[in-house]
Simulated assay, not measured.
Amino acid sequence: MRSLRTVTVRIPDSEDRYVPDLAVVPTAVARSEVWLRSAEDLELAVEAVSSSSALHDWKARIKGYARAGVPLYLVTDPSKGGIALFSVPEGGKYQTVERAVPGASVHLGAPFALGIEAAALLQ
Rank of each mutant, 00 (worst) to 15 (best):
V88L: 11
L108T: 01
F86Y: 13
R67S: 08
P111E: 03
I62K: 09
G81P: 04
S87M: 08
E98A: 14
A66R: 09
K80C: 06
R61F: 03
Y65F: 12
G109R: 12
I62A: 01
W58Q: 15
I83Y: 02
K63P: 00
W58Y: 12
P89E: 03
G103W: 01
G69P: 08
D77H: 13
S53I: 03
A113P: 01
A66G: 06
D57K: 11
S53W: 08
V106R: 01
R61N: 12
A84I: 03
Y73Q: 04
F86S: 05
F112T: 03
G91C: 08
P102H: 02
P89N: 06
A54E: 14
R99I: 02
A113G: 09
T96V: 15
T76R: 14
W58A: 12
G82S: 11
A104C: 10
A100R: 08
A104P: 02
V88A: 14
V101M: 13
S53C: 11
K80T: 07
D57W: 08
A54P: 03
Y73K: 10
I116R: 08
R67W: 05
A104S: 15
S79M: 11
R61W: 01
P78K: 14
A60E: 13
W58I: 09
G109E: 03
A60C: 05
E90Y: 00
S52V: 09
G81L: 10
S52P: 06
R67P: 01
Y65W: 07
P89V: 07
L114Y: 05
A54S: 13
E117I: 12
I83L: 09
L85H: 01
S52G: 09
L108A: 04
V70P: 02
A68T: 09
G82K: 13
P102V: 10
E98H: 07
T76C: 15
A60F: 06
A54W: 09
D77W: 10
R61V: 07
D57R: 10
L55P: 02
E90I: 10
K59D: 11
S105F: 02
K93D: 10
Y65S: 04
V97C: 07
V75E: 00
P78S: 13
Y73F: 14
Y65D: 02
